[in-house]
Structures are given as C-alpha cells and as structure tokens.
C-alpha cells in the first residue's frame, strides 16, 4: 500500500504559552477534498500554517512520504504545497502579473510556466484583464482569485485554503468554489478551512470538526452535514 499523501501525527502548536493545536492526527489521500471546520480559535488556521512551515510544531507531518520536519516554508512550496493564507496575502505593491510570476520562484520550465499562466487566466479571466494593474487596486473577490491563481502557478499538489469565502458576495463565493472543484478535478488535493461550514461540507468529501485545538468529530462530509451536533453548532440549527 502506498504511503498516505499527507499524514499528520500528534501535531501540537503553541503560540508562546497558548496552545492552539493539541495533538491532532489526520490523513489525507491524493485527490481528496477535505475540510476543517470549527469555531474561531479552534486551531484550523494553525494546522495549515504548520503544514506550510509558517509556525514551529511538535509531532510529525509527512507529505508524499517525506517528513517535513526542519524543511523551511520556501522549500515546501517546491515540494508541491501551496498555501492561500487567511486575508489572501496579496502583495499590493506588485502588479497582478508580478504576483503570479513571483509564485513561480525556482521554476525553470518557461513553457510550463506559460501554460500554467494560460490556465489561471482561463479560470479567472479577470486576472488577465487586470495583469498590469497594482494588486492593491483589485476588489476583494479579484484578490481572492489572484491568491488562488498564485497557488496554481507554483504547480501545487496540495492546496491549503484558508477562508476563501471571507468577505465575498455569495455569487463570487460560488464562482470561487466552482473553480476549486475544477482544480480538484485536475488532480490537486485540497485542504479547506472554512467558517462557512455549509459550503465547505458541500464541496468536501470528508471533514474534521475541531474544537479548542482537538478533533471533535470526523467523517464523510455528507454524514456530518446531517449530524445534529454539527447542524446545531455550525449550520445554524
């Protein structure tokens, strides 16, 4: 049997003396869409940060058979992990085109980069229209497109998404989620953190419900969506 695509064991992360994640283990298979849901402060964002190497942690994170311990964040990108951070992390002082180009740091395959840019422009035509504009002048929805587009430019195998629906109108959210489904269909595994549990459970195959840095419930997304405890706490009854 193959090693799991992403395997997290006994993950613990503390910010100073505050424990954000207290011993979480989870496994994701290649091609899945998995979502982490839970209230603010449940540790969802911190788990993504540990996977992408933004925070120090104890426990182990194994990606594609390789233990990521001690691998700095910028090398994890080259291994195929892309993180669309909370608040989008757009470089407002760079143009849209530069934001996309920066994410290809370390890649030398000019033709591949060109093809990926064409793909991003096909998924988000707005980004093609706004290529020479400063990214800071984009609307919230366009910035979210740029943030996802950037992750695609690094040719990620695992896409970590933190609150992609935040601050967007329902129509834009639907567009973004449609594109996420398309991205997943081309083989990219997705780990999604969402406040909007309803949407997240529609998109994902499996879900983890977190509370205070621990796993509360886990199972197929459809089953959790019907679970009375989840309905009451996260789906508004």
């Amino acid at each position: 049997m193959n090693a799991p695509f992403l395997q997290i064991r006994d993950l613990e992360v503390a910010y100073g003396r505050i424990c954000a994640v207290r011993g979480i283990s989870l496994e994701i298979a290649e091609g899945e869409i998995v979502t982490l849901i839970g209230a603010n402060g449940a540790g969802k964002t911190t788990i993504l940060r540990a996977i992408s190497g933004m925070v120090p942690y104890t426990g182990s994170i194994v990606f594609g058979g390789m233990d990521l311990h001690g691998v700095p964040a910028h090398r994890r990108v080259a291994l195929g992990i892309a993180h669309v951070p909370e608040g989008r992390g757009i470089f407002s002082n760079l143009t849209v085109a530069e934001n996309l180009s920066l994410a290809t740091w370390g890649r030398r395959d000019r033709l591949g980069i060109k093809a990926d840019l064409a793909r991003v422009h096909a998924l988000f035509p707005r980004l093609a229209e706004r290529a020479p504009q400063m990214a800071g002048t984009l609307s919230g929805g366009e910035q979210q497109m740029l943030s996802v587009g950037r992750a695609l430019m690094s040719r990620s195998k695992l896409l970590l998404l933190d609150e992609p629906s935040m601050g967007l109108s329902p129509i834009l959210v639907r567009d973004i989620f449609r594109v996420l489904r398309e991205i997943n269909a081309t083989g990219t595994t997705i780990l999604l953190v969402e406040q909007n549990a309803h949407l997240a459970l529609q998109l994902a195959g499996r879900a983890w419900v977190l509370q205070n840095g621990r796993v509360e419930l886990t199972g197929p997304a459809a089953a959790l969506a019907g679970d009375p405890r989840v309905r009451e706490a996260y789906l508004g009854g």
């Binding site: 992408s52 190497g53 933004m54 700095p72 964040a73 910028h74 990108v77 080259a78 892309a82 993180h83 951070p85 992390g89 470089f91 407002s92 002082n93 760079l94 530069e98 180009s101 920066l102 994410a103 290809t104 740091w105 370390g106 950037r150 690094s154």
Partner: peptide, 22 residues
C-alpha cells in the same frame, strides 16, 4: 524576479516564503 522578491518581502515578509521565496 529577485527584485520582485525584494519588493514582496518589503510588503509582507511572512507571506513571501509561501511563494517559494527564500
């Protein structure tokens, strides 16, 4: 691209590594 990375770091040093920038 190096200059782009310099400008990106100047804007947001914590996000730059997520682009693969050392």
């Amino acid at each position: 691209k190096v200059g782009m990375a310099m400008r990106a770091i100047s804007w947001d040093r914590t996000t730059a590594p997520l682009m693969g920038v050392p």
